[in-house]
Simulated scan of single mutants.
Amino acid sequence: MDRLKDKVAIVTGSTSGIGIGIAKLYAAEGAKVVICGRREEKGQAVVDSILKEGGEATYHFMDITATESIEQLMSDTAEKYGKIDILVNNAANVGLKDGRVDELTLEMWDSVFQSDVRGTFYATKCVLPYMQKNAAGGSIINIGSMASCGGDLGSTAYACAKAGVDMLTQSTALQYGKQNIRCNCVRPGLIVTPQNEAHVPQALKDVFLSNIMVNRYGNPDDIGHMCVYLASDESSYVSGQIINVDGGLNSHVSTVAQFRELNSRTW
């Protein structure tokens, strides 16, 4: 359990959901993990749970929409640990119901883009100087979304923002790869967490399960395990990749669920 031994990792938005799953697995693999978000009480609870399991973690306040907050997070982490090896850009505004093009206001659009693209961009920009100082470079992992895989009936701003994260991933990987800085993107499918389970309607779960290739929904550890791999030296030849961790949801034709209901392979 030392795949990330002695590495320093920042996981943004790690006071709930997927972020907690990533952070706990990082700590279990030997990383020094910085838990960050706006909710100190929840963040400290994550830190306490990691310490209880013998890991190392600290909490740092961060607001993904505030540039000064991001700058302070990076500088304080580097000052405390002497380096930054891993950045997981997980913090985002999950606006899955933001609406159609004609329904969206500019304020709604800007709010989603501020957290999901602007925040991810600025955290990446701010961590680069610290990773450039490392002989070993670093690994940046962006958490994208299956929403960017194609058009949808709603969630227009969110989908467009996450598509921007996809391209930011590839641009970062290309521009800094020769400095041993890798960048990859993980697109989660339907991830049911302790925080969102009560708010995910059964009808939505049924729709997803009829299209997922496996027999369950995702959980935070599914994303965490991929993020461990992408942060570790095992993936030193993997960069600029956009990886779906969605149970196979986006790897088949769109009519599969309907034909399953008809007990037919095709028309």
Rank of each mutant, 00 (worst) to 15 (best):
M1P: 10
D2V: 09
D2R: 13
D2A: 14
K5W: 04
A9F: 02
I10Y: 02
V11N: 02
T15S: 11
T15N: 08
S16D: 09
S16L: 12
G17N: 07
G17C: 06
G19L: 05
G19N: 03
I20Q: 09
I20F: 03
K24G: 04
L25S: 00
Y26C: 01
A27T: 05
E29Y: 02
G30Y: 01
K32E: 12
V33D: 01
I35V: 12
R38M: 10
R38D: 04
R39H: 13
K42A: 13
K42M: 11
Q44D: 05
Q44R: 15
V46H: 02
V46R: 00
V46E: 02
S49E: 15
I50C: 04
I50G: 03
K52A: 15
E53L: 09
G54E: 08
G55C: 02
G55T: 03
E56Y: 08
A57N: 04
T58R: 10
T58V: 15
T58M: 14
H60E: 15
D63G: 01
D63Q: 08
D63V: 06
I64K: 02
I64V: 14
T67C: 11
S69K: 03
S69G: 09
E71W: 03
M74D: 04
S75G: 08
K80D: 08
Y81V: 06
G82E: 10
K83Y: 03
V88G: 00
V88H: 03
N90H: 08
N90D: 07
G95Q: 07
G95W: 02
K97E: 14
K97F: 15
R100A: 14
L104C: 04
D110W: 04
S115Y: 05
G119Q: 06
F121S: 06
A123M: 07
K125N: 11
C126S: 13
Y130C: 07
Y130I: 10
M131C: 06
Q132P: 01
N134K: 03
G137A: 04
I141E: 01
I143G: 01
M146C: 11
M146H: 08
D152M: 12
S155F: 11
T156D: 05
G164K: 03
G164V: 07
M167H: 14
T169E: 05
Q170P: 07
T172V: 15
L174A: 15
K178A: 12
C183T: 10
C183E: 07
N184K: 06
N184A: 08
R187K: 15
L190P: 00
Q195G: 06
N196G: 05
P201E: 06
Q202A: 12
M213W: 10
N215Q: 14
I223Y: 00
I223K: 02
H225G: 08
M226S: 09
C227H: 00
Y229Q: 00
L230F: 03
L230G: 00
V238E: 06
G240S: 02
Q241Y: 10
I242Y: 09
I243V: 14
D246E: 11
S251F: 12
S251T: 14
V253I: 13
T255M: 14
Q258R: 12
W267V: 11
